[in-house]
Amino acid sequence: MTDTRGSGGALAGVRVVDLSRVLAGPYCAQLLGDHGADVVKVEPPVGDLTRTWGPSRADGVSAYYAGLNRNKRHLVADLTRSEGRDLVLGLLADADVVVENFKPGTLERWGLAADDLMASLPRLVWCRVTAFGADDPLAGQPGYDAVIQAHAGLMHLNGDPQGPPTRWPVPIADLTTALHAFSGVLLALQERERSGRGQMVEISLYDAALSLLHPAAASYFMTGVPPSRLGSAHPDIAPCETFRSPLGELYVAAGSDRQFSVLVDVLGAPALAADPRFATNADRLRHRHELNAELAGLIGRLDPSTDIATELIARGVPASLVRPVEAVLAALELAERGMVAELDGLRMLGIPVHLSRTPGSIRTPPRAVGADVPREATPA
Rank of each mutant, 00 (worst) to 15 (best):
T2H: 08
G9I: 02
R15W: 01
R15A: 03
V17L: 08
R21Y: 03
Y27P: 02
D34P: 01
V39H: 00
G47C: 09
L49S: 06
T50C: 12
S56Y: 00
D59G: 11
Y64V: 10
K72C: 11
H74M: 15
R85I: 03
V88D: 02
L91P: 08
D94S: 10
G105S: 04
L107N: 06
R109Y: 03
W110N: 00
A114I: 00
L124H: 04
G143V: 13
G143Q: 10
I148L: 15
G153D: 11
L154S: 09
H156N: 02
G163W: 09
R194A: 15
M200D: 09
Y206D: 02
D207S: 15
S219C: 10
S228T: 14
S232N: 14
H234D: 15
H234M: 11
R244L: 11
D257G: 05
D257I: 05
A271Y: 08
F278T: 01
N281F: 05
A282S: 11
R288G: 08
H289T: 15
H289G: 11
L291N: 06
L291S: 05
N292R: 07
L298Y: 14
I299L: 09
S320M: 07
P324S: 04
E333Y: 04
L334I: 03
R337A: 12
L343C: 05
I351D: 06
H354N: 04
T364F: 01
G370K: 08
P374V: 12
R375I: 07
P379Y: 03
